[in-house]
Design a protein around this nucleic acid. Structure first.
Lengths: 254, 254
DNA sequence: CGAACAGTTGAGACATGTCAATTAAAGTGG
DNA sequence: CCACTTTAATTGACATGTCTCAACTGTTCG
């Protein structure tokens, strides 16, 4: 029943594919997201002109471990995380993996793919995920039904850029423990922004991933967690984190 | 004479300010760049529909040391470097400066300002500079004369993002000397892309800036230069670099 | 000419990387 | 369902690369 309404709405959008093939499969595996839900997902706070826009965006399910975007695969649009946690990484000259970001609900994926027309980083699902696709045809449509989408895309890409810059800047904090403390603060803020508890959460990534993100070894990360636990600032049990004093965590130096 | 032609062309563009005030001053200090020059500056290689677009873009001169974009200042557009070298940096939580990029000819500035409507990083000129402004009105125009500009903006922002990601990824190369070697390779490539000699160039930034960019101290950078000189891979004289073996530099490990 | 800045080099302290052992958890297959 | 394997995480001992502090030089700028 949902599908009927969705399908008819989507007909207004120029770039929607037809249902000519595999309709039954689509009905079972795919869902759709409308423009206003996309905006609230992104937490877009700017002005919007055409909220009644009928554009529908296809969703994409991923199981933990699956690749969302592959390095070198042709660019087919941007994706917004609706559910789940992922890991964005690049392979450097020496073949080593470097983690760039941990996208979660509301984050944008794939903006590095516009330049060369192929994605420049690898994105894998750390948990089961649900993505919303903003197809390239929608981004580059010649005469657009609304250029709200364009404005939102600029906005979201710019946000990605700032967050990445901040992550980059974090790596010049001198000591591992300070970086880890800061990392936990950021995570807490992000969980809060998504509507979850900022004081108790489960990290979706491994110590190795965190280490790669912060440019330290996994052992150093582990030691830093233990040190923060000894100081009574957090509780750690594998990937389960409880923040006992956010203030102490935020002001942690040395 | 140049000014007359420029002025009349610029009248076609909606967002151009009038010449009602300070016309004489503008004639002396300001110049204009047209759309096709902008594209060649950016080294844009994609398809363009309206090359005859009459949009003119205002230039902006900077002396070495001047601030191009200030952290927190309201977003008024993107800028493309036409001449000179700059330094982009963020101030982290502890008040320390972290260098994010060294923009040069053809690079884009200010894309981190779209999100909050204010620039999130500080950009200062390392040498005298000449910038071309792409005003926010042009980016967000409701009915655009051409949406080529939009496509180019996406493209350029995406490129910035990739380059920043690569810089971020570079910092997890284990040892200082490897990072510095890689940094020099990148610089050589950039000078080559700008049409200058890739084997002999003058670095516009200090050792401290390089260190901040690579997350090492200025002393470590200096030692790395000396080590590479001892190995016969480069010649160094203060900021003047000569690459004796690009292959050795590129393959440098440990 | 003196002051401030940029860069080089050295010596010592120390944080982090490296290697290794151990435990717990999760996935695999009979 | 239980061995079996694999992976994640913790912790220790040791080596070492980098930071810190310092002295010294050359350059630039007022």
């Amino acid at each position: 029943m949902m599908n009927v309404q969705v399908e008819s709405s989507s007909m207004h959008a120029r770039w929607q594919p037809s249902f000519s093939q595999g309709a039954l499969k689509l009905e079972r595996d795919e869902r759709w997201t409308d423009f206003s839900e996309l905006l609230s997902l992104l937490r877009f706070d700017g002005p919007v002109r055409h909220l009644e826009d009928a554009s529908m965006f296809r969703r994409r399910r991923l199981k933990a471990g699956q690749s969302a975007l592959g390095m070198g695969r042709p660019f087919d649009g941007l994706y917004v995380v609706r559910l789940g946690a992922l890991k964005t990484s690049m392979t450097d000259v020496d073949g080593g993996e470097h983690v760039i970001a941990f996208p979660m609900k509301g984050d944008l994926l794939g903006s590095d793919g516009i330049w060369h027309g192929k994605y420049m980083s690898e994105v894998v699902a750390l948990t089961d995920c649900d993505l919303v696709r903003i197809p390239d045809e929608a981004l580059f449509a010649q005469q657009r039904s609304c250029n709200d989408l364009e404005r939102v895309a600029y906005w979201a890409i710019s946000r990605e850029m700032v967050q990445e810059q901040s992550a980059y800047a974090m790596t010049n904090l001198p000591k591992t423990e300070v970086r880890v403390a800061h990392f936990l603060c950021i995570q807490a803020q992000r969980f809060a922004a998504m509507g979850y508890s900022p004081n108790q959460f489960i990290l979706p990534m491994t110590r190795r991933d965190i280490g790669s993100y912060l440019n330290v070894t996994l052992e150093s990360v582990s030691r830093a967690f233990s040190a923060l636990r000894r100081e009574g600032i957090i509780e750690v049990e594998r990937r389960e984190i409880r923040i006992l004093s956010y203030e102490a965590l935020r002001n942690f130096r040395l």
